[in-house]
Amino acid sequence: MLQAFGSLITQLLHVALILAVAPVLVGVVRWLKARLMGRRGPHLLQPWRDILKLLRKRPVMAETASVVSQATPYLALGATALAAALIPSFAQGMLLAPLADLVLIGGLLALARVCLALNGHDAGTPFGGMGAAREMTFAVFAEPALLVCVMVLAVLAGGSNLDAIAATLREGAVGLRISLLFAALSLIAVMLAENARIPVDNPATHLELTMVHEAMLLEASGRHLAVWEMQAALKLTLWFALLAAIFIPFGTAPAGGGPLAWGIGLALWIVKMGVLALGLAFFESAIAKMRVFRVPDFLGGALLLAVLAAALIFFSMGLA
């Protein structure tokens, strides 16, 4: 009973936490990047302020836009939020943990991506269509990379349930495995592409020809833009949480652990997210954006790295 109650409470707290943290995380990454470049940087809550301001504004839609422009933001954010709700943050064994299948999470992200691409098409402007085509092309390489990484993890945990995988890796019985390192690198590359970060896309760009993610949102305004901004922030948080849950799963609290254990888990989770944000800021400051037609090479490399990880893990299984 306590267990069931705890799982419900942790689930609700988790959803509230991740929704509240998402824009702050974007603010943290922006601030860190600004500091690394010698600027003072905006306030950490600036993304939240932007979103709230956008919500107050009247949306202006293109004359050619249809109901798609109005519906897709909510659907995309809903799908992303559902995916985020499945990925453990401070506690494991939450209410939805049995549903937390990595293939499903990939599917929900694909749903959000397709919504975004359709939104890009809706106004019938050149940049929107171009951005949509590029986004879907990148996904062609990113999705199989994610799936093969899931296979690597499933070899260790027996299945593709995220909670089971995190539990297996937390116990530490798998040891230091190079295949996990390869899978982590591959997932990081996928994360960069999915979140439109450098070197795949530039989140701060204002040059239409080079952008992908922003190009699809050019015609969005008001609350629609606010929802899209929230979706992007939530997606970044989701990916960080996913990487943390798989590769640094230590210190999460059991769902029935009570407030103290949850508090420790929360503190550790915030530290993990901070480390990942710092890593991303360093990486983005150190590296240049690549040409669009070089991106398939980059993501194809990620896919092959994942396949290599799978080959190595089969090999170590064959040794045992």
Binding site: G175, R177, I178, L305, A320
Partner: peptide, 28 residues
Amino acid sequence: MTFGQLPYDMAHVLGGGMLLVSFVLLYQ
């Protein structure tokens, strides 16, 4: 010697790292 034991894990990671660098040499 198997996974979870330091001698094995270190050798495994070092060899795997060299393999990874070989791929970087192919890619870069």
